[in-house]
Write a protein that binds this DNA or RNA. Structure first.
Lengths: 156, 156
DNA sequence: GCTTGATCTAAACCTCACTTGAGCTTTCAT
DNA sequence: ATGAAAGCTCAAGTGAGGTTTAGATCAAGC
């Protein structure tokens, strides 16, 4: 048990269910760090399994990799999250989920008002981006709907 | 009122709040169609305002442009959605939102169980993709977490 | 010592939903 | 008839979160 506590990238991949390429990508993004063998191969600590797991869970909660990186960087010694860290972070994640649920519930209410109306009027329906950050997640630059909502005309 | 019922792309853009470039993009994707003037400029029907509005709303509900295209294609005569169509479609959208809310609520429950535990164990926490399509929305090909959940080892 | 499988790097490619730019043409009000 | 504003096409760029490919090297079992 002098060398066995270091694991190769393939094993880290297998243990976390992430592709090897993704692990290299995370390293390039600074989310994890690797030691190197004499021949240049990566060797990870067992604790990195936990670290990668955290990345996956945080992603599930809707954090971008950059935000995940921020969280990890905020850890005391740049270390893998321990129980106390996790309690703090996961409580924050909970708040995010609450916000997402609230946003969806609001949208559902608007949709309900709109079912059977069929007007699809931008003015009346209110089905346009009421500060709905969650729905905005996605790819690339996006036209911000509702930015100038007052100027959008009624259909007709 | 012989020519005025056709509108130029700029007006369609102004009436819907989307960029002109986005409208051309939608046309290229087959979501809307345009007539052409002798000089090659696009002319749209007034009904296309409603059609574009539908695209925006459906996107808000989390449909991809391809899915929006499928919905539009499913319309009786390939026509712009009318009141009855909208009732049918929006009821379907409502179901999607319900599913998203349910998924988030489930995740929140798992997170609650996990706060204070800190194990981050893939086996025990269950914080991995329980058929959570909503969280999967985003850019590009993505490793499907939990696909082989049974084979993912415990941390340690 | 040799072979096989794992790993290495760098760069290119992918999706989605658009935007931007270059270079030219059409439309419309005056 | 003209000049500004709006429109046209086609190609390339953006950003997130990776994957794929190519060609070379490393580590380990026999």
């Amino acid at each position: 048990m002098h060398r066995t506590d270091l694991i190769a990238i393939g094993e880290l991949a297998a243990r976390t269910g992430v592709a090897v390429s993704a692990i290299r990508f995370y390293e390039a993004k600074g989310l994890i760090e690797a030691l190197r063998t004499g021949g240049g191969q990566r060797r990870f600590l067992r604790a990195d399994i936990r670290r990668v797991s955290f990345i996956l869970i945080a992603q599930q909660m809707g954090l971008s990799l950059e935000e995940v990186g921020d969280e990890l960087a905020r850890l005391p010694a740049g270390r893998t999250p321990n129980g106390a860290d996790w309690t703090r972070i996961s409580t924050g994640l909970r708040a995010r989920i609450d916000a997402q649920i609230a946003a969806l519930t609001r949208t559902r209410g608007l949709l309900d008002q709109c079912i059977g109306c069929g007007c699809l009027s931008l003015k009346k329906c209110g089905l346009y981006n009421r500060g709905d950050k969650a729905a905005q997640r996605g790819a690339g630059p996006r036209y911000v709907i509702g930015d100038r909502a007052g100027e959008i005309a009624e259909i007709g």
